[in-house]
């Protein structure tokens, strides 16, 4: 029982990171129908940027993450700008283009930060909470809270602000949005920038829990992607459920199947997608592209 609960806690903690990654995926997807395969690598760049400002420049952790978010948001704008000619035309090509970006960013990280990577010390130094024999890290709680608050803020942004509403409109019908005077290109760019910023938030928060190196992106990227799909691609609340779900699934698979856990997780995932392509909260069409 204790093993089960502790596994659950561990799964939820990493799941919160996957959820933040999935949020960015979903936001970009629902707005412009693009699946950004470089999203994980953007998160990795965010993590490295955070580590540079936190460890090398000795800035406060929160500020370092803030800077990382801004840096990757700009990176997101660049990616969006480069791929813009393909928007609404060939989604498969765009998808391959983002894979190209991912490969590039990974190499770039090695050039800039080296291949060894770095361990980031935790900004919180309090002892873990002990609840009925369960150990819960205060930092894990922080990450979980950040993930939930971010989701709430994102939902609020989309529903209660003008820019957010415009993005919603673009997501539903780009043509109609254009006809009522919404600048689709700008809306897409904002979505991409926010998505990239969310990736940096995920990467930055993952830093002290994991180890920051160039392959961090592919590790959390693919799980975050799976989370987004599981939650129902493009669905914001679905992303958070999907993220936590994948985290827990991963944790239990690792406990139960050891080295074979990847095999089990990905086979299970393939079956889930076939049974329910729209994910848990899927609402829109199966294949918007």
């Amino acid at each position: 029982m204790q093993v089960t609960l502790q596994t659950l806690v561990g799964g939820l903690t990493l799941g919160a990171i996957y959820a933040l990654v999935a949020l960015g995926f979903s936001l970009v997807y629902r707005t412009m129908g693009l699946v950004n395969f470089a999203h994980g690598q953007v998160a990795m760049i965010g993590a490295f940027t955070m580590s540079t400002f936190y460890m090398t420049a000795k800035l406060p952790f929160v500020l370092a993450i803030g800077i990382a978010v801004v840096v990757t948001a700009v990176l997101g704008l660049v990616i969006e700008r480069v791929l813009r000619p393909l928007e609404g035309k060939d989604f498969d090509l765009m998808l391959i283009g983002t894979i190209g970006f991912g490969v590039m960013l990974e190499a770039l990280a090695v050039v800039v930060w080296g291949a060894t990577g770095r361990a980031v010390p935790s900004p919180l130094h309090t002892a873990p909470l002990s609840v009925a024999g369960l150990k819960i890290q205060t930092y894990s709680l922080l990450v979980l809270v950040v993930a939930l608050v971010t989701t709430a803020m994102l939902v609020g942004f989309l529903h209660r602000t003008r820019v957010g509403a415009a993005m919603q409109a673009v997501a539903m019908d780009p043509e109609a949005a254009t006809s009522v005077g919404i600048h689709v290109g700008r809306s897409n760019a904002i979505a991409f920038a926010i998505g990239a910023g969310l990736a940096a938030l995920a990467g930055g928060l993952a830093g002290p829990m994991l180890y920051v190196n160039a392959t961090l992106g592919s590790t959390i990227g693919i799980k975050g992607f799976a989370a987004a799909i599981l939650g129902g691609f493009g669905n914001i609340t679905g992303a958070i459920v999907g993220g936590l779900g994948i985290g827990v699934l991963d944790a239990f698979a690792a406990g139960r199947f050891g080295g074979y856990s990847d095999l089990v997780v990905f086979l299970l995932f393939a079956v889930l997608i076939m049974v329910r392509p729209t994910g848990i909260f899927g609402e829109r069409t199966v294949n918007r592209a």
């Binding site: 806690v9 990493l14 994991l210 690792a254 406990g255």
Partner: peptide, 20 residues
């Protein structure tokens, strides 16, 4: 005597088992 994968990041399950 448990085996993990080289990419694994969370070891709660196996470590809790070991702790017991």
């Amino acid at each position: 005597n448990d085996v993990v994968t080289p990419d694994q990041k969370d070891f709660s399950a196996v470590l809790t088992k070991i702790r017991s």
